[in-house]
């Protein structure tokens, strides 16, 4: 039963959504005067769709920094507050997921690890690049399953799968998969009772 004043389709409070965004009914992307207009400032994905949001999710002050090959999917009834979603391949988030204030989810290193390649990347990213191609870097999809709770200031790194019902404590840096229902804490995040 939808609330009477639910909008028929989702929307962004600070502008019209890019054409490759699909958003379900009752979902809203919002933010304050500072963060609201920035939500899609670095949304440059070529994929169609590049962002899929389910129904009744609320994304408050979230930045969708999605690169050319990036893709972000968010399920129903999610809530995120001033979080950073930074994608070069794929971030898939399930239903009823809570993402705390200033949490960061990344699916890539964004730069090569090898020192020589890093120099080449610095040049390719510079104002003097002249169209020079960037060297490859590692990206691996991130999957966050249903009912996961991610605390404020937490960081989820590339290739991680957080299974259903897990809890990521505030400030944790998650570098490995988290089993269903587990609670993780620390840097690097470890399972705690």
């Amino acid at each position: 039963m939808a609330a009477r004043d639910s909008p028929p389709t989702g929307y962004w409070t600070h502008g019209s959504l890019p054409p490759n965004v699909r958003i379900g009914s009752g979902s809203v992307i919002t933010g304050d005067d500072v963060t609201g207009p920035l939500a899609f400032k670095r949304f440059t994905t070529d994929r169609h769709p590049g962002l899929v949001i389910g129904a009744r999710s609320r994304l408050d002050g979230v930045l969708f920094n999605v690169g050319r090959q990036g893709y972000v999917e968010i399920g129903d009834d999610c809530y995120a507050e001033d979080a950073f979603l930074i994608s070069e391949c794929s971030i898939v988030i399930g239903h009823r997921v809570v993402i705390g204030w200033h949490a960061t989810i990344v699916d890539s290193d964004f730069h090569p690890i090898d020192p020589a390649r890093r120099i080449a990347d610095a040049v390719a990213c510079s104002p003097l690049a002249n169209g020079r191609p960037r060297p490859p870097f590692v990206s691996r999809p991130v999957v966050i399953e249903d009912d996961v709770w991610i605390g404020p200031n937490a960081t989820i790194l590339k290739g991680v799968r957080i299974a259903a019902g897990a809890m990521v404590e505030p400030g944790a840096v998650v570098t490995q998969d988290v089993p269903s229902g587990a609670r993780v804490l620390g840097n690097p995040a470890q399972i705690v009772p």
Partner: peptide
């Protein structure tokens, strides 16, 4: 361990919410 302010209060979407996700035994 709450921090679902807008969800609990309904926010601007005044949408039905299924309750806060369970953060485990704590």
């Amino acid at each position: 361990y709450r921090f679902l302010p807008s969800v609990i209060s309904g926010g601007t979407t005044s949408r039905p919410f299924t309750g806060p996700p369970s953060p485990g035994p704590r």
